[in-house]
Nucleic acid binder design. Structure first.
Length: 456
RNA sequence: GGCGCCAUGGCCAAGUGGUAAGGCAGAGCUCUGCAAAAGCUCCACCGCCGGUUCGAAUCCGACUGGCGCCUCCA
């Protein structure tokens, strides 16, 4: 499988893995749980979930680690404003996030490390950097010496000249950096902030160090895939590389840097800080998990896509088409061949996770199934393959009829009565039943073998 | 200002040298009491200009438009 690597700006073969055990080690930067997650986070989660599911399906063992940054400026600010402890706010949002992942049919990562759980490892990581001459304590803070790491290496991931960064660097006169490019590994405690003891006094980890420490401890010194949103390329992942490679002395830290493009909303990036966002909860409520996933996989993960009601509605309709075909009934005739659908699907996914192309294969397959059924052929195998491949993309193909289950006996009764009305050619009354049910979200379809209904 | 990305039918979106996948929406037809679902048919010469080539949406250059990053951010 080929994947695009941000660092080398080329495609790289995922296999062979770095480690001898053949396990793909993947670290994905997760969320900072200071507020409710939005669709951009959903896109991110779904992209890596599809990747993960595809590896599972191909029989490639993968260890997937995704962190929670549960020590953070915004988390502290917000918790203080709400008058609750930081960990309580984080906990609440992490719980919500996990619940939404489940609703979106996202497989859980194998490990979900949190900063608060690895503070001792972070401290020893920082101490190691100081010992190696890549960091220095200043006041109660500790800073990373960017120039020590080397201008070329530092700017490689974001393709930037280190000197251009200077103009944009935030220079805060109260900070104790010896070079504006340097960034904080450890921040000395300020009043009203949670803090941990350290060799440099009480304080807390800076933003970037936690991922280096967590990846090191959960996966090792070098990993196969490091993922995250494109907005993390600079400075977060840039700094991670600097920290980890300086600490371990090994390069590359990650063989493949995999970044998903950011979701747009009304011409702008969907972002918590800008405030233009649609929450995951809203989308799930309005369109359901399959529509959301279909929306995400309809475009390539490295192309920016825009959230819109039209797009979600189209995705919902597409998902329904696949579901209809996957659970249609075939005939008793000759079995329908699936041709090279499986190969074409695999080929597309192997090509830098080209989900739109993979999806096209599924739609082709769905058409073949429908056509075969119309010809009275046995489509069981084809439908089975369709369900299997939809599963690889994480589509549930579940009918949104959880609520309808309760009402099923009553609906069945109405359908039965309508059948009698139709037999008596009482079209007006029978249509009234059908239209009435439709208004209540139940769709009726009359076929040769009788009438079926489903929740819409 | 610096670095980078993108521009394909009404909407979305594949395609990186040989003459445009797929989905949604729309139109017609078939099936059907009607409807739904489904099937068939129809619907683009790929932002603009120039160049390379036997041949370009695909390569090169210029232009126009849009977007991202430049230490909050999936």
């Amino acid at each position: 499988m080929q994947l695009h690597d941000t660092l080398s700006n080329t495609r790289r073969e995922l296999i062979p893995a770095l480690a001898e055990d053949g396990v793909v080690r993947m670290y994905v930067c997760g969320v900072t749980p200071y507020s409710e997650s939005h669709v951009g986070h959903a896109l991110h989660a779904i992209v890596f979930d599809v990747f993960r599911r595809y590896l599972d399906w191909r029989g490639i063992p993968v260890k997937h680690v995704q962190n929670f940054t549960d020590i953070d400026d915004k988390l502290i600010d917000r918790a203080n404003r709400l008058g609750i402890p930081m960990h309580e706010l984080a906990e609440q949002n992490i719980e919500d996030y996990h619940r939404q992942l489940t609703q979106m049919n996202v497989l859980p990562a194998h490990v979900y490390p949190r900063v608060t759980e690895v503070v001792p490892q972070i401290i020893s990581f920082i101490q190691g950097l100081i010992d190696r001459g890549f960091a220095y304590a200043s006041g109660g803070d500790v800073y990373y010496k960017v120039r020590q790491f080397g201008p070329a290496a530092y700017g490689a991931l974001s393709r930037r000249d280190i000197d251009d960064l200077l103009s944009g660097a935030r220079v805060d006169p109260t900070e104790l950096k010896s070079d504006p490019l340097d960034f904080a590994l450890w921040k000395g405690a300020k009043p009203g902030e949670p803090s941990w003891d350290s060799p440099w006094g009480p304080g807390r980890p800076g933003w970037h160090i936690e991922c280096s420490a967590m990846a090191l401890h959960a996966l090792g010194e070098q990993i196969d895939v490091h993922g995250g949103g494109a907005d993390l390329i600079f400075p977060h992942h840039t700094n991670e590389i600097a920290q980890t490679e300086a600490y371990t002395g090994k390069s590359p830290f990650a063989r493949i840097w995999m970044h998903n493009a950011l979701l747009q909303l009304g011409g702008d990036k969907m972002s918590k800080s800008i405030g233009n966002l649609v929450t995951i909860a809203e989308v799930l409520e309005k369109y359901g998990a399959d529509a959301l996933r279909m929306f995400v996989i309809s475009s390539h993960y490295r192309s920016p896509s825009s959230y819109s009601d039209e797009a979600l509605e189209a995705a919902r309709a597409g998902a329904e088409r696949l579901r209809n075909a996957a659970y249609s009934s075939g005939g008793a005739g000759e079995a329908l061949e699936t041709g090279d659908a499986r190969e074409r699907f695999t080929e597309a996914m192997d090509d830098d996770l080209n989900t739109p192309r993979a999806l096209a294969v599924l739609f082709d397959l769905a058409r073949d199934v429908n056509r075969g059924a119309a010809e009275g052929r046995d489509t069981a195998n084809a439908r089975s393959l369709l369900r299997e491949l939809c599963g690889v993309l994480g589509l549930t193909l579940a009918a949104p009829e959880a609520e309808a289950q309760q009402a099923a006996p009553f609906i069945d009764l109405l359908v039965a009565v309508r059948a009698e009305l139709r037999a008596a050619k009482q079209w007006q009354l029978s249509d009234r039943v059908r239209d009435g049910l439709l208004e209540l979200g139940i769709e009726i379809k009359d076929g040769p073998e009788g009438t079926v209904w489903k929740a819409k």
